[in-house]
Amino acid sequence: MSNFVTAAELNDLLTTGAPVRVIDVRWRLDRPDGRGEYLEGHVPGAVYVPLDQELATHGEPSEGRHPLPSTATLQAAARRWGVRPGDTVVVYDDAKGIAAARAWWLLRQGGVDVKVLEGGIRSWKAAGLDTTTDDVAPEPGDVVLAEIGADTISIDEAAAFPASGVLLDVRAPERYRGETEPLDPVAGHVPGARNLPTVLHFDAEGRILDHDTVRATFASVGVTPGTAVAAYCGSGVTAAHTALILDEVGIPAKVFPGSWSQWSNTPGRPVATGDQPG
């Protein structure tokens, strides 16, 4: 079963009264608070979710920019969104699924049936479907989440991962090579990591490419069914998108949530540069 739903499929769910809760996770590095855009128009009934507050926690720089929230924090947030046992949660953004994937990855670990709206809010509008401008505050839900964290690896596990599997660095190539680093104190990549930017897996509208193409892209860096694979990015958001895509083509993956922001802020961690794993 696919991790994605189309705009038409979501509209059908909403109009037939299926137990579905829609959440709007508009977040980008250059605009982390997307509430303004949400209030300009969103899928009817969608609840705005602030990624930095409800899909992450805050700590020291050595923990990374988006540490994993506790299960209790995520459960409280899901209840605020109105999620009840048995609900399907559909999540979307306006950034080609990058932020939405963070919610998918966390909720999936918690045992929620969760889907991503393919193409995000743009696909909804392109389909000619209505949007609303209210600030949705549903009746609180009572969902109970399973413990999250099993789909993660620690910084020490990330360091050792290339010896037994494929560690993917899914950032832009220039950041991987260490030519530029706009956010973190050190440029480069985790030694042994292979670069495969997550943007290679979707088209200009944010829709996943055909599965054969996606599998071939992963195979080009040694990731095939049965391969142990983990992903990291700058702060653990984009890496969740790669995990989403991998799961869609039948390859389970772990995520290093601290990612480069944790690695580069931890004294003594080695750094590789250039276009080879190192």
Rank of each mutant, 00 (worst) to 15 (best):
A228C: 00
R194S: 09
D93E: 12
P44E: 07
S62H: 10
Q276H: 10
P61C: 05
T6Q: 10
R122A: 14
T6W: 11
P19C: 05
F202Q: 12
D113M: 09
L168V: 15
D142P: 12
E37H: 08
P191F: 07
V112H: 01
F256C: 03
G268I: 00
G110P: 13
E9S: 12
R102Y: 13
D156Q: 11
G86Y: 01
T273H: 03
R171I: 06
I148Y: 08
E157I: 01
R269L: 13
D169T: 00
V112Q: 00
A72N: 05
E157T: 01
A150P: 03
A101I: 04
F161Y: 14
H211Q: 11
V214Y: 08
S261M: 08
P85S: 09
R108Y: 05
V49P: 03
P225M: 12
G274C: 05
S154G: 14
R28E: 15
S259C: 09
V170R: 03
P191K: 04
V237E: 10
V49S: 12
V89N: 00
D151V: 04
D142K: 01
A126Y: 09
T73A: 15
P185T: 07
T180A: 15
V221Q: 11
T6K: 02
V249C: 15
T16K: 04
D135I: 03
N265C: 09
G268Q: 07
G41I: 02
G45C: 03
T152Y: 04
A204F: 06
V20T: 14
G258V: 04
T198F: 15
G36W: 02
G206E: 11
L13I: 01
G110A: 03
A230D: 14
H211T: 08
D210E: 15
E157S: 09
S220A: 13
P140S: 12
S235L: 05
Y92V: 05
V90E: 10
P277G: 05
R31S: 14
N195T: 07
Q109L: 12
P44D: 11
